[in-house]
Design a protein around this nucleic acid. Structure first.
Lengths: 213, 213
DNA sequence: GGTCAACCATACGCGACCGTATGGTCGCTG
DNA sequence: CAGCGACCATACGGTCGCGTATGGTTGACC
């Protein structure tokens, strides 16, 4: 739960942070002016100076979320100089870890009924799926299959995030088990890649696993 | 949107149906007594005769959802006499279709913060994952790998449902494309099954595709 | 140290929803 | 057809959140 330090006056950004925290904890419906004001130790008077209304706060929060969970990641991966198999692994590991610690995404998916939320989700989804298609293409899959696998991979990611947050104990819980599970997933998703382009993911994974920890 | 026919008096069950419809359209928060009463063409007076309070309605709706989306399906699949590959295909096709037409599941996942919702999700998740593990075992995978693949498959299912509801146009949209995509998914998820137990999913799929349509 | 803009507190009216109270109305059954 | 239990309508008080209005504070700068 976000809480600015000290007793200084608040900036627009403080409200955005608090709104994201509220989404994480209570869903989009929890983006409510008065409760958030209370949590920030202030009142509505402050809020309505920085924003015209509740919807504007939500919009700002969505934009912030979009920026930091997608735009930033895509820049990083798309420009990476690693080999494609390494890119995929980087992507998966980074993104799965992020998903497990972040409740905002699932909460937003839930509220896809609201137009503002739907628009943000739409943009993020297309950007992410596009990125994954690129990675699978670089791995040597023809475009049609890259698309299928990208959709499967992204679906799995979304579902994984849900599972991580909703049902304690279905996903493997020790660090070793998690790593092994990720390895299995990698190898299932990349099995059949054209050799010579990127090699077999399972062996690549095994190689890495012995050296980096 | 549920609406009982005629002007007859209402039963408890009518309220439960209407509540599920409300969840589908507006999320758990939309399970509100007065709006639902209005939609049913009645008033709170009726509601508070059938239920002690709002929470009881939610509980009843969750129970109904749990029963029809999980218990029933599991009975059907687990007792099927089909070969394992056919069971998996049946499961996937049936369940994916159901997921695309049903907004209740995603809406509930969103509200996993509420204890009552969390409990229902927990039970449903474990039951479903357990079923899928069984199917993969019958396909010839050793238990550990069956578990990994089941989790991957279930994650993919959850994510697929999200995608189907949130982002128009990312998933393939013609019937043929969808069938092809499902085939791809099947073959990725089952690749490497011990031969002789169930055969190769892709060829099984292709065989079927030529004959059933 | 006065001034002006940035920032915040308080009070108010409004609507949505919850749950209770109380008095109908319906329809079966004797 | 009287009566009783099932079912429903209406009115009420309470809470919570939105948005507006209006009048403080605060602090940089002259």
């Amino acid at each position: 739960m976000y809480m600015p330090e000290g007793k200084r006056r608040l900036a627009r950004e403080d409200w955005v942070e608090a709104a994201l925290a509220a989404v994480a904890e209570g869903g989009v419906a929890a983006v409510a002016v008065e409760p958030i004001a209370a949590r920030l130790g202030t009142t509505k008077g402050s809020f309505y100076w920085h924003f015209p209304n509740r919807a504007a706060l939500l919009e700002a929060a969505l934009a912030a979320w979009e920026e930091r969970t997608t735009t930033a990641v895509i820049d990083e991966i798309a420009n990476a100089t690693e080999d494609p198999a390494g890119q995929l692994r980087t992507l998966i590991v980074r993104v799965i870890e992020a998903a497990e610690g972040d409740r905002v995404g699932p909460a937003l998916l839930a509220a896809a009924g609201q137009p503002a939320v739907a628009r943000a989700i739409d943009r993020v989804t297309r950007a992410r799926v596009g990125l994954i298609v690129t990675v699978f293409s670089r791995l040597g899959f023809p475009l049609a299959e890259a698309r299928s696998r990208a959709l499967l991979a992204y679906s799995a990611y979304l579902g994984h995030a849900q599972l991580a947050h909703s049902t304690e104990g279905v996903l493997p819980d020790t660090a070793a088990d998690r790593r092994a599970y990720l390895g299995d997933v990698m190898s299932v998703l990349t099995a059949g890649a054209r050799p010579g382009t990127a090699g077999n993911a399972r062996t690549a994974d095994a190689r890495r696993r012995t050296s980096d920890n």
